[in-house]
Design a protein around this nucleic acid. Structure first.
Lengths: 252, 252
DNA sequence: CGATGTATTGACCAGCTTCAAGTAACGTGG
DNA sequence: CCACGTTACTTGAAGCTGGTCAATACATCG
């Protein structure tokens, strides 16, 4: 814990994420408020637990770099991944507002995180309507993601689920890590993670994924890179409903 | 459409929902702002579509009385119910913030609804931090509900799912409609709705529900009332994780 | 060089879906 | 008042998707 000492390693204005076209441009005074609420910038290794299920007094982060996921589990250990987190995603909003963490958050890769003051959410609401509006937008957006996953897990078959998940992760990841020639997009998941996100068993996930690969629709390298070879084919398999908007989004 | 005419049938201060101990007390000036944003109070019959999937320009409501649900569906008609809506729930938040409705909303029973101005969310953020904070809280809370359902659909067995859903609906409904002696709590769902919410087929839902009833754990009357006879037994079956907080909540 | 984690594949089985048929309750029109 | 259509519920039988068990291969790592 770094007491009240403010040790901002990177000024928010210089934040590399801001340069990404995925995020809406921001006013100088908004940036100043965010910077005043920033406590620290930290790194976490792959596999680290950022927030444990049931934990109270959870911290607030913005994910700067890397992959993570939110999950919930049953007493007997069965685990469900609720959604994946990529750079720009806000972490701890739900927990902050409802006190105890209903879900855990774990790192898939090494992470860089921006740490905010515990009272940040209230400060945003009190001091800057535009930013508090953005926070609400982020909360709504995150729910939309979970809604999508619920539709998948509840109503899609195994092939459909995998196609859908790979497609949407691929699309999201592409914004942050451009595809390296022939190697595909970086996606540091094990098949166990896929299975946990899809509500399938590990074995069945493997067999189904294998069928997709053999069918020439995508490639899943052993170094955890994904290539989509036949995007239209996968989209057809995934039974995408209304084509989803890429949508520029706020970054706090 | 009632043009710009303000025809508030009930003053917010007299709103019957406010008397429910489920909701946090509210300041006079907060109430005044809410009332200024209220346009109308309307009724809808059971089965009505409040918001269609893909609809743009969605309205904003607070559900005053009755049951509804949010859903998403696939091109071929398979439908997943995302969550159920009870009095006090805010409707249209997600759609408002992301433009097009990613999910539909349908009435299970006859409804009474409070209709708000389209710019309400922004007005709250601009004018009253306490209320904008509440809005964010509601969004976060709704996501928590979906998280729960996703865990269920992804990782629980059929018996567990049904027990869990009935238990949580029963608990929520109890706040609004006290159990009538021996008749149970009003729950205007068909088994098809249960199936759609649980990611199960109608037939299997029926058979599993029947087993619960024959096991003496609950009763599902033909007039759509639910009695939980053996709450601890059902909770054990449902594999409830951490006991959930009833939690007082804001009402907008 | 074992130990561990991940991927892969086969064999078997069960939970759930689909198909099918029948009952009961309700509303509507003749 | 009853025939009929409709909707919801119920139950049995058969079949498939996906789960469980098990064995192997392969890589990384201390």
């Amino acid at each position: 814990m770094s007491k009240d000492m403010v040790r901002t390693t990177t000024p928010c204005a210089a934040c590399s994420l801001r340069r990404c076209e995925l995020f809406t441009p921001i006013e100088a005074h908004e940036l100043a408020l965010i910077e005043s609420l920033k406590i620290d910038e930290i790194a976490r290794p792959a596999g680290a637990t950022l927030i444990a299920e049931g934990q109270t007094e959870t911290p607030l982060y913005t994910l700067l770099d890397g992959w993570a996921f939110r999950y919930k589990s049953l007493p007997d250990g069965r685990r469900q991944i609720l959604s994946f987190l990529l750079p720009g995603d806000f972490i701890g909003l739900q927990q902050k507002l409802t006190d105890d963490a209903a879900h855990g958050v774990e790192a898939l890769s090494a992470l860089r995180l921006c740490v905010f003051r515990r009272d940040m959410i209230w400060a945003l609401h009190r001091d800057l309507p535009t930013l508090s509006h953005d926070i609400t937008w982020l909360a709504a957006q995150e729910e939309r993601l979970v809604d999508d996953n619920l539709l998948s897990v509840g109503r899609r078959t195994a092939v459909e689920r995998i196609s859908h998940l790979l497609l949407s992760l691929h699309q999201r990841a592409l914004f942050h890590w451009p595809e390296k020639a022939g190697r595909g997009v970086w996606m540091p998941l094990t098949q166990q993670h896929l299975a946990d996100a899809l509500g399938l068993s590990l074995v069945h996930t493997n067999k189904t994924l294998r069928r997709l690969v053999k069918g020439g629709l995508c490639r899943w390298s052993s170094d955890q890179h994904l290539t989509i070879s036949d995007a239209p084919g996968m989209a057809r398999l995934a039974k995408l409903p209304h084509p989803q908007s890429p949508a520029v989004r706020p970054l706090i």
